[in-house]
């Protein structure tokens, strides 16, 4: 083997390795490094403070609020998206123009940029002129404050996230449903299986890899929610919608507390990393595969 033949594979993967290292590996390590320092982005000196940033974070009431906001947001978004999209998929999993149309319609939010979606929903949820309040007014209900009230703001953001995620999740569920061979349903029909039994004993177990995949992907995505918050609420009112990534952004790029923000980033990394590890662990052991 010539030297060239030996080196060729490395040469081939080098560009992607370089890009990956520059934009993924290096920033991660740099963030971990910065989390041990006190730095304001501008001053030439960084002061080593050890674990002080982490200590401050865990004692900071705002940070605890942020963590709980993020967790509530994630749990609500993931649960609602998964359940609703599974129901939609069960309904849409058949041929016909109408079903194809609905499938396309609910998928369309997925391809629209989150900034546009945020602006659209800000208008829909406007307490004075918004369409939503007009609609609920038609039914005789009181107007809601939506994004302007601490009690409803987070849920309003969950509604936007579910609306955006529904199409993609439904599509993946439909693909999962279609991968179940039809003769299994026929066998179930001959076994006198009622629809609910078929769903619980056959469809749900066979969809478990799909459900698991979507839950984890949605969790990771929800933990990193940023755009809707930055545009629609800026974390308010009174911190009721402040989440982890928005908190990192505010501390890092508005208050220039880089070390502090990096420490929060490390915590986010740990949470998402843990979720990913759980995902692969469970995938290999608990979830059914044919």
């Amino acid at each position: 083997m010539t030297v060239w033949e030996k080196l060729r594979p490395y040469g081939m993967v080098a560009p992607s390795i370089v890009i990956f290292s520059m934009f993924f590996i290096y920033p991660i390590f740099y963030m971990i490094y910065l989390s041990f320092y006190d730095w304001n982005f501008i001053s030439p000196t960084k002061t080593f403070v050890g674990l002080q940033n982490f200590k401050d974070l865990l004692l900071d009431e705002d940070f605890r609020k942020v963590l709980s906001n993020t967790t509530v947001y994630t749990l609500l978004t993931v649960t609602l998206t998964t359940v609703l999209s599974l129901l939609l998929a069960l309904w849409l999993n058949r041929k016909g123009f109408f079903h194809a149309f609905v499938q396309g319609a609910i998928f369309s939010p997925h391809i629209i940029s989150l900034v546009s979606i945020s602006l659209l929903w800000s208008w829909l949820m406007d307490p004075e002129y918004g369409l939503l309040n007009w609609v609920i007014g038609l039914f005789g209900f009181d107007k809601l404050q939506w994004l302007s009230h601490p009690g409803t703001a987070l849920v309003s953001l969950v509604i936007v996230a579910v609306w955006k995620g529904l199409g993609y999740n439904t599509l993946v569920f439909i693909a999962g449903l279609q991968s179940i061979p039809s003769d299994i349903f026929e066998a179930a029909a001959l076994d006198q299986s009622k629809p609910w039994t078929t769903f619980r004993r056959i469809i749900l177990p066979m969809l478990s890899p799909t459900i698991f995949f979507l839950v984890i992907i949605n969790m990771i995505g929800s933990f990193q929610v940023f755009e809707t918050i930055a545009i629609m609420t800026q974390g308010g009112p009174v911190n009721s919608t402040n989440t982890l990534v928005y908190y990192i952004y505010e501390n890092g790029f508005r208050f220039f507390k880089i070390g502090y923000a990096s420490a929060a980033g490390v915590i986010l990394l740990a949470i998402v990393g843990a979720l990913t590890i759980i995902y692969f662990r469970l995938l290999s052991s608990r979830v059914h595969y044919r």
Binding site: A187, A188, A189, L190, Q192, S208, R290
Partner: peptide, 21 residues
């Protein structure tokens, strides 16, 4: 009559076993 109530049992070409059971 629904398939399950015809008192008929079937063996399928690909067996159609319930893979999760």
């Amino acid at each position: 009559t629904a398939p399950g109530h015809r008192d008929v049992a079937m063996v399928f070409q690909n067996y159609a076993l319930y893979p999760t059971m």
